[in-house]
Design a protein around this nucleic acid. Sequence first.
DNA 1: TAGTGTGTTCAGTCTTTATTGAACGTCGAT
DNA 2: ATCGACGTTCAATAAAGACTGAACACACTA
Lengths: 156, 156
Amino acid sequence: MADQGKTVAEARSDFIEKIGVIVQTEGLPRIAGRVLAILLFDGERLSFSQLAELLQVSRGSISSSVRLLETQQMIKRVAKPGDRQDYFQIVENAFPHLIEASVLRARRAAADIEDSLAEIPHSEEGPRRRVAEFAAYYRAMSDGMSEVARLLRDKG
Amino acid sequence: MADQGKTVAEARSDFIEKIGVIVQTEGLPRIAGRVLAILLFDGERLSFSQLAELLQVSRGSISSSVRLLETQQMIKRVAKPGDRQDYFQIVENAFPHLIEASVLRARRAAADIEDSLAEIPHSEEGPRRRVAEFAAYYRAMSDGMSEVARLLRDKG
DNA sequence: TAGTGTGTTCAGTCTTTATTGAACGTCGAT
DNA sequence: ATCGACGTTCAATAAAGACTGAACACACTA
């Protein structure tokens, strides 16, 4: 079997670190990736201090990481009766939300480039055509990713 | 008209700097973005030293930027008869090639996460299901982006 | 009211990455 | 062979960003 010799704790720890690296590759802070990974793996809510403890990082880092993940709607802050601490858990449709964040960035880039296009004199046919292709690339990417998000949402 | 008061030179310069920033946002070196922008805007081949001169950066930076853009198949190195210098120009289907690079990264991430999944004991249904969702996200993204590349290729 | 536990902020430090510029090997011309 | 122009490499520097930890404001408890 594929999981021979691995305990759950080892698999979880490996997963957390692996996602940290992948997320870092995508240009986001590694700690944010690790927070996401642990919340995804465990599924249930974890407290602010649990996150700092489990990941062995400062509270400041947890604060900024959860803020980033909240703004991308990957995790949500929840309350636990009888506990003053903030708890966090992965949201439903986390990945579609992540995609929507990328969609927004691509739309913004497309709009930026379309602004540039508007500033090129109409006599410049070649540059206008090529810059328009660049804008079209971002438009196609945003539309395509939006469709991927929809598919994931419908399936899940 | 939208291009009132802007010369071609101004529009080109603004475009180059804007793409530099956008590309930087995506995690790539700003100079690579500026090289790409100038080759896209002008359309025609530019020499190694022209790039260094026009962008006011060191030859070392041009060397590493063009190498990066070449590996992503965004630009190609071409010869000019009677000139020893390397020349560069934007390739056909540059944007589909750019997308394919992202597709590869996403596929690699999906495979990585599928490896992690294989290490989680089968008794752990919850974690296995959620980690599988993560892998499915990368799979869906790579497939979706691949389709976007195909669409752009067919249209252009 | 003081005291404790909470999350945020921010100045400082550390790490990573981008960029420079000089040294180098190569090629072609003379 | 020497020279000069070329592109690459790499050590050093600069710039950007992540992370820490202490100070802080707030809320709840006693």
